[in-house]
Design a protein around this nucleic acid. Structure first.
Lengths: 215, 215
DNA sequence: CGTTGTGAAATGATTCACAGCT
DNA sequence: AGCTGTGAATCATTTCACAACG
């Protein structure tokens, strides 16, 4: 097992791409795959694929390629996907409720066990089978239910405050949909939809034809 | 005006961050800003800010900083935000409808003028004031209404097909929420929600405390 | 053969250090 | 004094080139 800290972030991002592709191929009956094939499916050079996978040590076989099952295991382990995760959603507005109904989260082992909202009239109701609670109960809930992840779908003005609450409650990481930087001592991944569209506008304006992923 | 093509992508991403911050400060009455202040608000070094802004030529003033208004103009122009954009949404499911209700899009000049869905029972209805049409009418609509952007919120299996349809109709860029690479000759920005959570799981597992943005 | 794994080279991005402006 | 703009240096990432393997 490589020391996670010394794997470059661009590599980690591609690993999750490889993982999905190989899982799909394995489901289709493909038990082995070469760096060339894998790269071709994803628009990545074979050299890059090998460099990335070399972080797992000697796992491929010359003249053959990589064993899908073995590789999937190694990648899931490294990415922290060899377990399930519990998450809470804060903000049961449009984005929040769409996330509750997003089936890929559960498929990938991420379970949203409760939602919280400022609006007291939502408390006691449920959406997509997930109960919605008052924001006041957030702190106790997280501590009681061993929740690792907070998904933040609240307005930008409220985001920092809720983030601090989450951290105080012992959350380990935050997926942030508010267009703000969060000052908190845990890992944060931000999804900024406006900026995604802005980057697209730039690409169009500059005549750039290409694929870009927004983190 | 710098040649857009030669601005590094990391720089462009930060520019949209600078733009938002400076607009907020200007609204608060702040007519001038230094690279130090701007960087501090965003967790970026002052040197980095100056290097990024140097692509606009000599726009700052020594001992003073940058004029907010002037800088905003330059950045909006470069990013393609000195105009409005017309977009269509394809896929009026949970994610799609949440995007229709996302107010920041209109604020930034992105107007979703119509939605399209496979499900014929949705045709003729509307969501958030945006009419939903049958998928068959997509090609004609785009050609007739001068739409530049397609927002793809359909299942992964359907994404490539719809993307080809969009390109055939003359679309110039695609914001893709399906977890697939699109093989099309236009700019694509992908937002992959599962991968965002996966990256968060990795950060937690590796003990990494930090801010990462998903493109 | 086709394929992996990897040093070495090349490219890309950030940070440093400082000259020069107001 | 405080700040910008930038060449040079450092650091990070990708690509090249090729030896070794089955």
């Amino acid at each position: 097992m490589p020391d996670r800290a010394d794997i470059p972030r661009p590599t980690v991002k591609r690993l999750s791409l490889y993982l999905r592709e190989i899982e799909q191929r394995l489901a289709a009956g493909c038990r082995t795959i070469s760096s060339r094939e894998l790269g071709a499916s994803l628009g990545i050079t074979d050299t890059q694929v090998r460099k990335d996978l070399s972080h797992f040590g000697q796992i491929g076989r010359s003249g053959v390629g990589y064993q899908s099952v073995q590789l999937i295991h190694a990648m899931r382990r490294l990415l922290g996907l060899d377990r399930t995760w519990k998450a809470v959603l804060i903000g049961a507005g449009n984005i929040g409720r769409a996330l509750l109904a997003y089936p890929q989260f559960v498929e990938r082992g991420f379970h949203i066990v409760a939602a919280f909202d400022q609006d007291p009239s939502l408390a006691g109701t449920a959406a997509e089978g997930v109960p919605i609670h008052e924001l006041d109960s957030l702190l106790d809930f997280i501590a009681d239910h061993d929740v690792q992840i907070g998904i933040l779908a609240v307005p930008a003005e409220a985001a920092q405050g809720v983030a601090e609450l989450l951290v105080e409650a012992g959350i380990q990481g935050i997926l942030n949909f508010a267009p703000t930087r969060l000052l908190v001592p845990v890992g944060v991944i931000s999804v900024d939809l406006s900026r995604s569209l802005e980057m697209l506008a730039y690409q169009i304006s500059s005549g750039d034809i290409g694929q870009v992923e927004m983190e």
